[in-house]
């Protein structure tokens, strides 16, 4: 029964997201696209935190690298091909994750958290201090990439509506890919590693290699999100890879409940909504956000995903 209820919920949500751009509200269509992009970002982190057991506090680095790669791969005075910049960003971010992963996966626990943060900060300084990406001012993407394949133009990103649908498709594909990945032999192995790494090694799994692969895949997907973000907003700054961004995405994942893809997506939407509402109230909205975070940790262990179960238990609606 539960399966059917959640499928219906998913179907309704997807339908709502597809229909929404018809409201012709440019602002909210863009906001929706932003939330979905952050949802992709959160999904990629959940693969690490929720399923591989790697708490990365530097995931913004790969998001930012994806965003910068998109801009840097694009020609200055012509629209780039979407089919060049998007894969290019994914590969660049994945490659960065692979290299950084070789270092950070030598550590575990608290060290891992600190070292991922430190490496992300290093990447931040690369873009902040040097001229490659326009320094601290950032850099503009002058034209939206073109989706043309020869004479065929499947869609046009200049159209806000079509752009939003494209992001929707990217989110659904990412979600499908990750769900599929978890059912694969590789996915079973990383979940096993999260559960009991020592035993996995004793069984003959080269666990570090699996973790490195998961780290790389997560980095590549974060790069996809970063690329979409750059395309949506048309400019990138070092703030995209600041540690606040890493903290925010971790917040989305935990808020939604780790180890639940639906939770990550919900967490991203909740984050964007909170940001929107709070910043409407006061310039010092981060104060409210901080308060929500502290309260959530103290009073809502397990995140939003655990909420239905908690409510059910609280109201004794135990009808199986």
């Amino acid at each position: 029964m539960k399966f059917r209820a959640s499928s219906v919920a998913l179907f309704v949500a997807v339908a709502a997201v597809i229909v929404f751009p018809f409201t012709d509200s440019a602002f909210y269509t863009e906001l929706l696209a932003k939330a979905m992009i952050l949802a992709i970002f959160a999904l990629s982190l959940d693969l690490l935190v929720g399923y591989t057991g790697l708490v990365s506090f530097g995931h913004a680095a790969y998001f930012g690298i994806g965003a910068y790669a998109t801009v840097l791969l694009a020609p200055k005075y012509d629209p780039a091909s979407l089919w060049v910049v998007l894969p290019g960003a994914v590969v660049a971010a994945g490659l960065a994750a692979l290299i950084i992963g070789l270092f950070v996966l030598r550590t575990r626990g608290i060290y891992f958290i600190m070292v991922t943060l430190a490496f992300a900060q290093m990447v931040y300084y690369v873009f902040h201090d040097t001229a490659i990406g326009g320094g601290s001012d950032g850099i503009y993407l002058n034209f939206k990439p073109s989706a043309a394949l020869g004479a065929f133009r499947p869609f046009d990103l200049e159209q806000a509506r079509q752009q939003c649908w494209f992001v929707t498709a990217a989110l659904l594909i990412t979600w499908w890919f990750l769900a599929r990945l978890l059912r694969s032999p590789f996915g079973r192995a990383i979940v096993g590693i999260r559960s009991n790494e020592q035993r996995m090694r004793a069984l003959g799994f080269a666990t570090v290699r699996y973790k490195l692969a998961a780290f790389t895949i997560a980095g590549a997907i974060a790069g996809l999100a970063g690329s979409l973000y750059a395309i949506l907003f048309g400019f990138v700054t070092p703030e995209l890879l600041s540690w606040h961004q890493s903290g925010n995405v971790l917040l989305m994942v935990i808020l939604g409940g780790i180890g639940s893809f639906a939770g990550s997506v919900g967490g991203a939407f909740a984050f964007v909504a909170m940001q929107e509402v709070f910043s409407g109230w006061t310039r010092h909205w981060q104060l409210l956000m901080g308060g929500v975070i502290v309260a959530a940790v103290l009073f809502l262990p397990g995140g939003l995903a655990a909420l239905p179960g908690r409510l059910k238990r609280a109201f004794g609606a135990d009808r199986g």
Binding site: L250, I258, Q286, G290, P301
Partner: peptide
Amino acid sequence: KRDHLEQVLLTYGLILIFEEGRSL
């Protein structure tokens, strides 16, 4: 007694509070 993840999150929330408090 909480795991590192929750420690990270709560202390991250504290940073936001301190930073904005300072700004106020």
